[in-house]
Simulated assay, not measured.
Amino acid sequence: MDVLDVLPRDAIPSIDSPTFDTDYFGDGDDAVVVVEGNPSRAYPIRILSYHEIVNDVVDGTPIAVTWCPICGSAVVFERNVEGRTLTFGTSGKLADDALVMYDRETKSEWKQPLGRSISGAFEGTELTALPAPLLSWSKFQSEYPDGLVLQPVYGGEHDPRGQSPQVAYDMSPYDRYERATDFGLREMRGEGPKRTWYRDDIDAKTIVLGVTFDGEAVGYPLSIVEAEGGVVTDTVGGVDILVVSSTHGVTAFENPGFDFELRDETLHADHSSWDPMTGQSDNGRQLLRLPARRMYAFAWQDDHGRDSFYGL
């Protein structure tokens, strides 16, 4: 693991007192991280790209909504660890080009895609990941009509630079990075070592949905899921899973044993139709959403090895 100091601690400020409302300043196709609750909450990638961590409490559970722009990694973790509630910030370091968080209580450092502490009092401890799909803002609005969205910290009438939220949270540098062939800090900021990708069966920045159970980790490349008709069934760590891809994103559910097929953006199984992103059926049944980690292929391979991909 290569750890690199890039910025001072907290130079990228986490959001520690998040506020929510029903209005969002961005576009309908903007991606949001969804945490289901009462009400469900949307955390726009547009805001997360500038803060990377949101310390929040949903339905009484302290959580950290985390995002690494360089490795495209979106993971939501519980903040309760061994009887303590931790508050996370950005360490200013990267480990294999991935965000390194630190907790303010013990100063332990945690590699974000893994959710594992790499130094400090909690070294070797892993955070509990929670189900948190990425949806478009418009899809979130339609599926969670009572849902709330994270409000911007920058921009608006009290912004010291007089900027609007649209300007303060400009996505053009992140969009440029997403379109680029190369990857890593060097491609994002023009500094650090250049990364090389030694395989031709998958691109370094292919979107992967990673699922881990009982010590087993399998990454599901979006391209492979799409090639199999948008539905993949598998078993990871003894858990039967269903990975589904649609125009709105990719997500994972526990497989109840039905023979699923995706047609016209709808799942069909057991004489019912199911929403591929929410797991809700037309007759009131609900698929159990599983914890999963969305990231680029290079980040998944850094953590789990070359042979950890489904179908390759």
Rank of each mutant, 00 (worst) to 15 (best):
R306M: 05
L209D: 13
F213I: 00
P113Q: 14
G305F: 07
D16W: 04
Q112V: 02
S172M: 00
V244F: 02
L130W: 06
T278D: 07
F122Q: 13
R195N: 14
A64T: 08
K107H: 14
L114P: 07
E228K: 15
G210V: 02
P69D: 11
A121C: 01
A95E: 11
G311P: 10
A180N: 11
N38V: 03
D201L: 05
L86C: 07
V208L: 00
Y296Q: 09
D23L: 02
C68P: 06
V236I: 04
D146Y: 08
G28S: 07
P173K: 06
Y24S: 00
D97Q: 13
G238I: 01
F213Q: 13
G229A: 08
L185T: 08
K194Y: 04
G26V: 00
G249F: 01
L288H: 14
P291V: 04
V32F: 01
K139Q: 10
I53F: 03
G120E: 02
I118N: 09
D146A: 10
T61M: 09
A204L: 04
L130I: 09
D97N: 15
V225E: 03
G72N: 13
E78W: 00
T235A: 14
G219S: 11
F25E: 00
T233C: 00
A269R: 12
F258E: 14
Y177S: 08
A64H: 03
F258W: 15
N55T: 05
A98F: 00
P113K: 13
S273P: 03
V57T: 15
V75E: 07
I70K: 07
S281N: 11
W137I: 02
A42G: 09
G215Y: 09
G155M: 01
P256W: 13
A168F: 05
G156N: 12
R46E: 03
T212M: 06
V167Y: 00
D203F: 06
C71Y: 08
G83K: 05
D270W: 08
W137L: 00
S223H: 13
L127I: 01
P173D: 05
G147A: 08
R116S: 11
D264H: 14
L114E: 15
A98E: 11
L267H: 13
P131Y: 09
S272P: 00
R306T: 12
G311I: 01
V81D: 04
I207Q: 15
R289P: 02
S91V: 00
A252N: 10
G147Q: 10
R179M: 03
T19K: 11
D10Q: 11
D97S: 15
Y310S: 11
C71T: 15
S49H: 05
G305C: 07
P291A: 03
E216I: 05
V244E: 05
L99I: 04
E191C: 07
F213M: 08
D10I: 00
G162W: 05
T278G: 07
